[in-house]
Simulated scan of single mutants.
Amino acid sequence: MRTLRVDEYLVRPVEPQDEAAVAQLWQALADYHVRLDPRMPVPSEGAAQRYAARLVERRNDPQTRAYVAVVEGEVVGFALGAIIDLHPDLFAPVESGYIADIFVDPRYRRRGLARDLVLALRDWFLASGAAHIEWQVAAANSAGIRFWEAMGGLATVVRMRMEPEDDLL
């Protein structure tokens, strides 16, 4: 895979004309996760198109924000964030920013696009009153883990999995 030079790029909120590109990027993200770990969920038929349509439909939702990274008119990355409050009936209410997805076309990585997508979400989270920002990263995604650590991320929970038929002894 050839890395492309990036002199200028733009990070902006998602717009209706971005839907097809976001669908392709989301499919690439899902495929990447399955390649990293076959236990990751396999997308259903048409999932990428439904995902991208939802991002566009919710672009004015005050609890959700999606940004795209654009190079020479081409959408080459995206990030999705939401304001959440997990279990407000059980814990003191704290609004959190949650980064649900982020992906940059591998040809454009290590150019600052992912960082700037995260910073755009961070600014929106701060303006929305979020007390902190959370996300998940696949355990097999060592590059992703390094990225998030470089962004200041600290592990707070380890999500584990077991297949019901596994021998426990």
Rank of each mutant, 00 (worst) to 15 (best):
residue 140 A to Y: 06
residue 151 M to N: 00
residue 96 S to M: 11
residue 113 L to C: 09
residue 121 L to Q: 02
residue 167 D to V: 15
residue 13 P to I: 11
residue 14 V to T: 14
residue 8 E to P: 07
residue 70 V to M: 06
residue 165 E to N: 08
residue 140 A to G: 13
residue 91 F to L: 08
residue 132 H to N: 13
residue 86 L to I: 04
residue 157 V to T: 15
residue 168 L to P: 06
residue 142 S to T: 13
residue 137 V to D: 04
residue 168 L to K: 14
residue 7 D to R: 15
residue 95 E to D: 03
residue 77 G to S: 09
residue 82 A to Y: 01
residue 110 R to G: 04
residue 79 A to E: 05
residue 157 V to Q: 13
residue 52 A to K: 05
residue 42 V to L: 10
residue 75 V to S: 01
residue 69 A to H: 02
residue 72 E to V: 04
residue 137 V to L: 10
residue 64 T to A: 11
residue 138 A to Y: 04
residue 109 R to T: 01
residue 135 W to M: 14
residue 59 R to S: 04
residue 152 G to F: 06
residue 39 R to E: 09
residue 3 T to W: 14
residue 140 A to N: 01
residue 28 A to Y: 07
residue 29 L to I: 05
residue 61 D to Q: 01
residue 146 R to V: 08
residue 4 L to R: 15
residue 129 G to N: 10
residue 56 V to T: 07
residue 108 Y to M: 06
residue 84 I to W: 01
residue 21 A to N: 04
residue 146 R to P: 00
residue 66 A to D: 07
residue 53 A to W: 06
residue 136 Q to Y: 13
residue 40 M to Q: 13
residue 61 D to K: 06
residue 34 V to F: 09
residue 13 P to R: 14
residue 63 Q to A: 12
residue 126 L to V: 12
residue 45 E to G: 09
residue 24 Q to N: 14
residue 110 R to Y: 07
residue 35 R to K: 13
